[in-house]
Design a protein around this nucleic acid. Structure first.
Lengths: 280, 280
DNA sequence: TCAATGCTGAAATCATAAATTCAGAGGGGC
DNA sequence: GCCCCTCTGAATTTATGATTTCAGCATTGA
């Protein structure tokens, strides 16, 4: 009873409802779930009933109050907009043991990429790249347990196109030493996805104290580091129940690298020329 | 101005928002449109800002009041569910006319992902995962200049689900020492994209001599390592003239990790439990 | 037709959410 | 490094929306 969808509850309860209450039910089903998100008065008017009736209707469905009912609708809506992979898996009941695994994974990842692109405002993306192409300050990178490799990948590329790139390694002990060199106006790129690394918050506090500008690359649930960040690039990582995937982070990083290279081509091309032929 | 979608207005306005207002904007984009349908206080809390800031943010978007803003969201939602073309997120927001850099990049990357999925036979993918789920032999990883970070990312995940994972670091000097431990039946995952790393061919020769089974992750032009490989996962990396992108490699690696984890769940879950701390 | 029952909505009340204010913090410029 | 100006969120006020009440109306059964 508790965990049922609102529409489900309506169907269960509809015979118990009085005729005016049924009007409310029909109204809601007719433009579901929007009408339920409106104020009671509007719901009532649209459904052709009084506010009091709508309230009684909502009570019949088992909700403690109208706001409580609205919360249920919102949660449902939120749930619905989540990953198709999750739903298809649980819907078919397949333990996903078949040969389509890669296809399904890739399909979901494509959704995440699209989602990320629309989550990131163009101006934000551009600002990040411009900031990176400006080589007056140094550029620091740090990541969490897994994202540290993405940070490393970015570092390796950034080193080709600009000077002053340094990575903060994961060992807490040495971080203090490294942070000593941070100057106001430096830029710091932090990678943090859930479960968020508390150490990165500490680092960010310190970076903020030293007036570095923090660029945060994170997931849709937003690392707490965002409080300190000047710029944020949120990426979709949700892959359904079990997994999060960082593919979108990686691609956004590649896009930043590509764009930054474009922006700093005069400088970068010389640099790359001189590094060329040097082995790693 | 009047008839614009809320998401569109956010993108238009984001550059003139103050930083706390941006947090509100990001919060809303992150769970769109649900968060905006919640009361101000909840919106504020979820987005990590104060109610006052959320109200100012809404005013910046050009709405007369918070209820006015919510009405707009509801109408949008209603509109979307009525329209026969159910097209998802990409429909929200921009007129899709002139595409910005990130959009173009992501679009291209999506092509690469699709291409990779069709380039890799399902049976090949499945065999790789089964081979990795079989923990009788050790598992070695090595990558090139940039792909080494992808190897590192994979190593970090594989360590969670199985024993005997080791990475060959890039220094030629120490490689011989590390390779001494390779036993027949071990599996080695090599990452190599163009410009191919000659060192990796050397490593592969040695690995082959020691009867290790080589899994090669490469690009569509095929690393020379493929001569020694038992299994190959080719990925599309082409981004047009200047760039290659390794996003597809990364995603294929994540798919392999996910599938391998599924296959070895009985073992892996215990391991992950004892290591504590699982997500990316 | 006349009770009896209980449904309904207008109006009154109450609660909660929105809007405003303002003191203090933080950031940017000189 | 200091000052000024803008931004921020806690506290307060205002407004709006949720809830309750109750008189009247409809329906049902005798």
């Amino acid at each position: 009873m508790e965990g049922k969808s609102v529409a489900g509850r309506i169907h269960d309860a509809i015979h118990r409802l009085t005729s005016a209450e049924k009007r409310a039910a029909r109204g809601l089903l007719g433009s579901y779930p929007t009408l339920g998100l409106a104020p009671v008065a509007e719901f009532a008017q649209q459904a052709g009933a009084s506010s009091a009736t709508v309230l009684r209707f909502v009570a019949q469905l088992g909700y403690k109050s109208y706001p409580d009912f609205q919360r249920a609708l919102r949660e449902e809506l939120e749930e619905r907009s989540k990953s198709p992979l999750q739903r298809s898996q649980s819907a078919t009941g397949q333990p996903a043991g078949d040969k389509n695994f890669l296809d399904r994974f890739v399909t979901q990842e494509i959704e995440n990429l699209r989602g990320s692109a629309s989550l990131i405002p163009a101006s934000e993306f551009e600002e990040v790249c411009e900031r990176l192409a400006d080589t007056r300050g140094a550029c620091w990178l740090a990541g969490g347990r897994f994202t540290d490799f993405v940070a490393g990948y970015m570092e390796a590329h950034l080193r080709l196109i600009r000077q002053g790139v340094r990575r903060l390694d994961g060992r807490v002990a040495t971080r203090a030493d490294q942070l000593i060199d941070v100057k106001p106006g430096d830029v710091a790129i932090i990678f943090d996805v859930r479960r968020y690394d508390p150490g990165l918050v500490d680092v960010s506090v310190e970076l903020a104290a030293r007036r570095a500008q923090i660029v945060l690359v994170t997931d849709e649930w937003m690392s707490p580091v965002s409080r300190f960040a000047k710029l944020v690039l949120p990426c979709r990582t949700d892959m359904g129940r079990t997994w999060d995937a960082n593919g979108a982070l990686f691609t956004v990083v590649e896009a930043v690298i590509a764009r930054t290279t474009e922006l700093s081509w005069p400088t970068a091309s010389k640099r790359m020329g001189s590094i060329e032929g040097t082995s790693s």
